[in-house]
């Protein structure tokens, strides 16, 4: 299987990439390529121009800006796993990256590509919702920032406009009295999630001060389980409340039936992944 013909561009800078993207009709950005190239082989995508960001060192790397963790969009999954800064400031992302695909794919696949592609099966979008991350986006009119919340609009549809490039992901710290939980059900290595749930919460004493629940692959895009969050916010979370929240999670789900399961199964698995993630988050916040 070979993609149909295209012109290949190796930009010298992000500015150059944006210029190429805007000057050429039907141009696409190539990040890690492990979603786009398979789609091109199957002719689901036939861009006339490919703009390869892999040579751009300015899009790589992980740094701290105050207490915000800043991750270059072209940082690979394995670079996340190996990063001392990520281990220290956002171990959740290490847990997530370890369950993405397999070692070879993690050497190519990038966090920015995973977020910007808009596939509801990708792992980072729902995690970014739960982390309340912010995306740095550059376009012909300069740089802008957009919150993860509100960015995921539908399948392969995000807040990234045509002609724009995502350059960085900014992740605020999880507070000292906070915790996270990440649970992903998958059939085998390399498969997308049957269902996944990320929970990030903050406690005030025994009470849940803030909570965000992000769900993977149970709707046309990554979603927040907002009704469940509203139920739990301000409460002392116990098993009875977790059960009520799980019911609300199921009401938020709108999965597509496929080989991973039917609608009912996936919906129930999203609830179960959320129960586990809430318990994990509480345990981490309490320790």
């Amino acid at each position: 299987m070979i993609p149909s013909g295209f012109e290949y561009h190796r930009p010298s800078s992000v500015q150059d990439a944006i210029r190429l993207l805007n000057e050429n009709e039907d141009a696409k950005i190539l990040a890690g390529g492990h979603s786009l190239l398979p789609m091109m082989k199957l002719r689901f995508a036939e861009p006339a121009h490919l703009i390869d960001l892999n040579g751009l060192a300015e899009l790589k790397g992980i740094r701290l800006d105050g207490d915000t963790l800043c991750i270059g969009a072209m940082t690979t999954e394995n670079e996340l796993i190996d990063s001392d800064l990520v281990k220290q400031h956002c171990p959740l992302l290490v847990d997530v990256a370890k369950l993405v695909a397999d070692p070879q794919v993690r050497n190519r696949g990038t966090v920015g590509g995973d977020v910007a592609h808009g596939d509801p099966g990708n792992d980072h979008p729902a995690v970014m919702l739960a982390l309340d991350a912010e995306f740095v986006i550059q376009g012909p009119d300069g740089e802008r920032r957009q919150a993860a919340n509100g960015f995921f609009l539908g399948t392969y549809w995000t807040g990234l406009e045509e002609g724009e490039v995502m350059t960085e992901i900014r992740i605020p710290p999880i507070p000292a009295n906070g915790g996270y939980g990440y649970n992903k059900l998958k059939r085998k290595t390399g498969d997308y999630a049957t269902a996944g749930s990320t929970v990030v919460l903050e406690l005030d004493g025994a009470s849940c001060k803030e909570i965000r629940i992000g769900l993977t692959n149970v709707a046309p895009m990554a979603i927040r389980a907002e009704a469940a969050e509203d139920l739990l916010r301000g409460q002392n979370i116990d098993e009875a409340l977790i059960e009520q929240a799980a019911e609300l999670v199921m009401q938020a789900c709108d999965p597509a039936e496929d080989l991973r399961g039917d609608i009912q199964y996936k919906t129930h698995m999203a609830a179960e992944m959320t129960r586990r993630s809430i318990r994990d988050a509480l345990a981490r916040a309490g320790s």
Binding site: Y8, R10, G33, H34, L37, P38, D52, P103, Q104, V105, N107, R108
Partner: peptide, 10 residues
Amino acid sequence: SVKSCTVLAM
């Protein structure tokens, strides 16, 4: 390690 079926020769 990479999978050479999903890397362009370029």
